[in-house]
């Protein structure tokens, strides 16, 4: 069987992704200590947990801007890649669910093939859309407000007070934490456990069939132009 390499993950996306992953994991751990200081003491003093949480929060917010800037301005592929389209919603979601929860166990191949311009299967699209456009903005904005309670007091009161902000921050953070477990697990569902993870690190994915070889080559040169 012939195989070739496709440049799937541009450098900006990879930098964002791993900074973000490290940041979110750090935030989950330090956040747990901040909320449950009697039970979680892994980072030493409460103060260091707060300092780390604030720093990681800023890193995540900045790397989110890299992500947005790259997809929206540099590559201008954000809408295409992240927003599910007609067929994704009518048949695509269903097909992908059947694959994950049924045919996968019988050895059927993934019905979706990642290409640079259509990277995600319909389920991924919906999940990533919710993560990147709902959870991430909510958790970051509430975090920024909580971090600047003093100067931003009026805005805080306007949106319903500190307690509500904290509730949103906590619940979205728990959702992101839940996402990590699911996401990391699904990332190991490729032909080998590292098959999806490696491209996220190197940028290149090994593709077995070649029905869209032309497209990939074009996209590869585009991707390289863009940074």
């Amino acid at each position: 069987m012939s195989s070739k390499m496709v440049y799937l993950q541009p450098i900006a996306v990879r930098i964002w992704h791993w900074l973000n992953a490290l940041g979110i994991v750090t935030l989950c751990i330090s956040g747990a200590q901040i909320r449950f200081p009697e039970y979680v003491t892994i980072l030493g003093s409460y103060r260091s947990a707060i300092m780390l949480h604030n720093t990681a929060g800023i890193v995540v917010a900045l790397s989110f801007s890299i992500w947005f800037f790259y997809y929206k301005i540099v590559a201008n592929t954000l809408d295409d890649i992240y927003i599910p389209k007609g067929s994704d919603l009518t048949t695509g979601l269903f097909r992908q669910v059947v694959f994950y929860f049924f045919s996968y166990f019988f050895g059927a191949p993934n019905p979706h093939h990642a290409t640079p311009e259509n990277k995600f299967n319909p389920l991924q699209k919906s999940a990533y859309l919710a993560i990147m456009f709902v959870l991430m903005p909510f958790v970051s904005l509430t975090g920024i407000l909580l971090m600047n309670m003093g100067p931003m007091r009026e805005i805080v009161m306007l949106v319903g007070g500190l307690t509500l902000l904290d509730t949103i921050h906590f619940l979205t953070a728990c959702s992101l934490c839940a996402f990590i477990f699911t996401h990391v697990y699904l990332a190991t569902l490729g032909s080998t456990p590292m098959a999806y993870i490696k491209p996220m690190w190197t940028g290149w994915e090994k593709v077995e069939n070649h029905h869209d070889a032309e497209n990939s080559l074009v996209d590869r040169s585009q991707a390289e132009h863009s940074h």
């Binding site: 839940a178 477990f181 699911t182 697990y185």
Partner: peptide
């Protein structure tokens, strides 16, 4: 919060 996180464990 715990339920949400437990939900994330369902897949793995």
């Amino acid at each position: 919060g715990l339920l949400i996180i437990a939900g994330g464990m369902v897949m793995p």
